[in-house]
Amino acid sequence: MGVFVRGNTIWYRFNYNERQVRESTGLENTKENLEEAKFDFKRLKRQLKEDTFDYLKWFPNSPNLEKFGIQKEVPEEEIPRIKFSELAEEWYLRQKKLRLKNTTLKGYKSSRKYAVEFFGDMYVHKIKRIDVEDYIIHLMDRELNNKTINNKLIAVRRILELAYDKELIEENPARRVKNLRVEKSEIEPFTAEEVSLILNHAYKHYHRFYAFYAVLFLTGMRMGEVLAMKWQNVDFNRETYHVRERMTNGDLDTVKTVGSKRHVEFDEDGIVLEALKEHKKYSFMKSDFIFLNQYGNEYTSSNHIKINVWEPMLKRLGLEYRIMYQARHTYAVLSLLAGDNINFICSQMGHASFEMLFRVYGRFIKNNQAKPKINSLISLDHRNQNSTKIAQWS
């Protein structure tokens, strides 16, 4: 059993009803087609093993059908024969007319591409629930995580829902296909001592990123919001930052919800304010953006910082590795442990209600409405010693 090439065409070899058969895929022998054929052959083998293989569906024009006594279907002229790829294009053009956010359209475009690669020239009225489930398995074979697969399914469901609305199908076969389970990321906050170690190390060895980490740990802002920070939104007199934009999927976009658009207050001890003032020499009057890469451009993702600063820093400090998003969890947990005002924490983090805060961080909440004092937990060497020495770019 396997995939092989004859002439310039890709073929399959497999056993059916205790007989070895060969079937042409009709695909030209190219690197891309060969990869696609191998993915599809995994699906074929799985269906053979599970006894769900439909010879007619896979090879409707095969001369082997007669050998196995399989009758070819008579074309149903009354059923509109619309290919999935055609309907997918129509659906995507409709989304573009709805004036959706660029990031949303970008996600739909990617999902449509994946779906068309799989369903392609299949007629929509021929697509069954098992085909949608096979699509999920296909995405698993491509090593996509469950959350990404669920996002890709959104486009398939909506394309087939359009087919239903146009009365091309009697029911949407994707409706009854459940999303895959997505495990919630575990909250693994840093301790106050660990935050102090990180900020002190950043100040001495990665000074260009000191303000970045001060903001990340001491304001509760999201990673995408920090990457999108601009000087024009900093109010040095009121010691606040006006969150309006975020970096997402490599693009600058407005924040997602009304609650996310907010004024974030800096810590009352002035750590963030002082850090941003020091950071002016790196980007102020050079760019609208506060945090720039080595080429003088804004960061569109945190990958470079993760690989070149975050990972080496944790390793040097001997700290257990955690993703940078844990800085936001750390802000919430340390604020709650310090007894900070819950209203204030919600406002800082962009939560519209207490529900999210209680659901995620409930076990850390203290019955205390005191004035915010997370900064009292953080100890910075250069501030304690009134040191003005700044380490060079590492």
Rank of each mutant, 00 (worst) to 15 (best):
T330C: 02
V195S: 09
K57M: 14
P372E: 08
K306I: 13
Q348W: 09
D269R: 06
W310K: 05
V124K: 00
R322V: 07
K147I: 05
S111Q: 08
M140T: 13
Q20C: 09
L273S: 10
H351T: 11
G350S: 06
A214C: 15
K38I: 10
T388H: 15
G2L: 00
A211Q: 05
N64G: 08
R158Y: 08
Q47S: 12
R383Q: 09
S62H: 06
D165S: 09
L357E: 02
V74T: 14
I79A: 03
P173H: 06
K280R: 14
E245T: 04
G259A: 08
K371Y: 14
V3W: 02
R175M: 07
I169F: 05
P312T: 09
V360K: 00
N17C: 13
V360Q: 03
E186S: 15
I345K: 03
Y361C: 02
E143P: 00
V195I: 06
M324H: 10
K184I: 04
G339V: 10
Q392P: 00
I342Y: 00
Q71E: 15
S287D: 09
L216G: 08
A275Q: 02
G120S: 10
Y16C: 08
T25I: 02
Q47H: 11
R208P: 00
K306A: 07
T388I: 15
Q95Y: 01
A202W: 03
R112K: 15
E274M: 04
K366L: 12
N15F: 09
L218C: 07
G296C: 07
E77M: 11
G7S: 06
G339F: 04
I137S: 03
L317K: 06
K371D: 09
W231Q: 06
N297D: 14
L319Q: 07
L180M: 13
M229H: 05
K281H: 10
W310P: 03
R43N: 13
E170H: 08
E76G: 00
K256T: 08
S24F: 08
T191W: 12
F291S: 02
E171A: 12
K306V: 12
K57I: 03
L168D: 01
H279M: 03
N237Q: 15
D340E: 10
L153T: 07
N200F: 06
P75E: 11
T219K: 02
Q326W: 07
